[in-house]
Simulated assay, not measured.
Amino acid sequence: MLKSLNKPVAVAALAVVATVASAGDIPVTDAVKDSGKLAIANSLSYAPFEYTDENGKPAGVDIELATAAANLLGAELDIDVVPFASQIPGLAADRFQIAWSTFTVTAERLEQVDFVSFLQTGVVIVTTPDAAASFEGEHGACGRKIAVLTGSSGDFVADKLTEACEAAGKPAVEKQIYPEQKDAIQAIMAGRSEARLEDSTSAGYYQVTSEGAQVVVGDPMFPLPLGVAVRKGDTATAEMMQAVFNAMISDGSYERILSGYKLNASGLSESTVYTEASQLPN
């Protein structure tokens, strides 16, 4: 089932992408047991993780992983289409129990929600091939117009880059905030932005699919885990999702799904529940 905020829309069942396994060892929450559904909030607007394909159906690595998770739980996947920036507030308001997006786990976000990790990433600079050389070096982004997705890891990293620029006596990053990934991509192509800050996983995928129209500059910065978000203190849901991810890692379905998107380098050997900033790498 796919829902767009307040308007339910029925869709065909998503394809099974992993071997159905027993959920006997997974602590299934009462919400899943009672409803028979694994209900998640997702934006469907962040390729390759979540998007709508040419047939109008949900697609992407997050959707395939979520479908596999529902299979393990013996449940139906139910997607509530919610803008990325509204998902953490929605959890806090008790509108849903799981926000399944590629959230970078940050200290700021951990003040509001808990996370269950399923990937790891850093942030990279993405620009056009002709501008790539000008962004190389420690302070290549200083004084430049940089597009970011609101509330994303790139949004946070832009602030960190500004701190480094100003400490070196250089101009701050001119951060330009956009609501969705496609808007930031278009801003570069239209010349409104000089570059964008993006998760290394998504940026690498787009570099391939765009046939080099935008390229990655340098190595990933500030590597951190990626996770699904649950309400602060919702131990039952967090433990269920951790067990689901570890089951998929164990049975090989996790690796098969990541392989389809060339994301194996971002995979984990074990899922972790993050509840406080002290768990994050320094």
Rank of each mutant, 00 (worst) to 15 (best):
E174I: 10
D234Q: 04
V216D: 07
V215T: 13
A203Q: 09
S200P: 10
G233Q: 09
K232M: 13
Y178A: 09
T209E: 08
R196P: 03
K232C: 13
M189E: 12
V215E: 02
Q176W: 04
V217E: 04
R196N: 13
D183Y: 11
G233E: 15
E194M: 03
E239H: 02
V228A: 05
L226D: 14
F222N: 11
D219F: 05
E194K: 00
A195W: 01
A195Y: 00
T201R: 06
E180A: 13
D199E: 15
E211K: 15
R192P: 03
E180R: 14
P171F: 00
V230R: 00
L226K: 04
V215G: 03
Q214K: 15
I188F: 03
G191P: 01
G191H: 01
S200A: 15
K182H: 13
A187E: 04
V215Y: 03
M189F: 08
S202C: 13
M221C: 09
P225H: 01
P223D: 14
K170G: 09
D183H: 11
P225N: 03
I185G: 10
V208Y: 11
L197I: 02
R231K: 14
E239M: 06
P220H: 08
G212L: 06
K182N: 13
P220Y: 06
S200E: 15
L226N: 12
D234G: 04
R231P: 15
K175S: 11
A238N: 10
P223Y: 03
V230Y: 00
Q186T: 13
M221L: 13
E211V: 12
V216G: 08
T235A: 15
L224G: 07
I185H: 06
V173Q: 04
S193L: 03
T235P: 07
D234K: 00
S202A: 15
R196L: 15
E174H: 10
V228G: 02
S210M: 11
M189R: 11
A195D: 02
L224C: 08
A195L: 03
Q181E: 14
R192W: 00
V215D: 02
K232Y: 14
R192L: 04
A229P: 09
V216S: 08
I177P: 07
A190R: 02
T237Q: 07
L224P: 03
K175Q: 10
D219E: 15
E194D: 06
I188M: 11
V217Q: 05
M221H: 13
L197H: 04
T235G: 09
Q186P: 03
A238Q: 10
A238F: 08
E180L: 10
V217G: 02
S193T: 03
E174K: 14
Q207P: 14
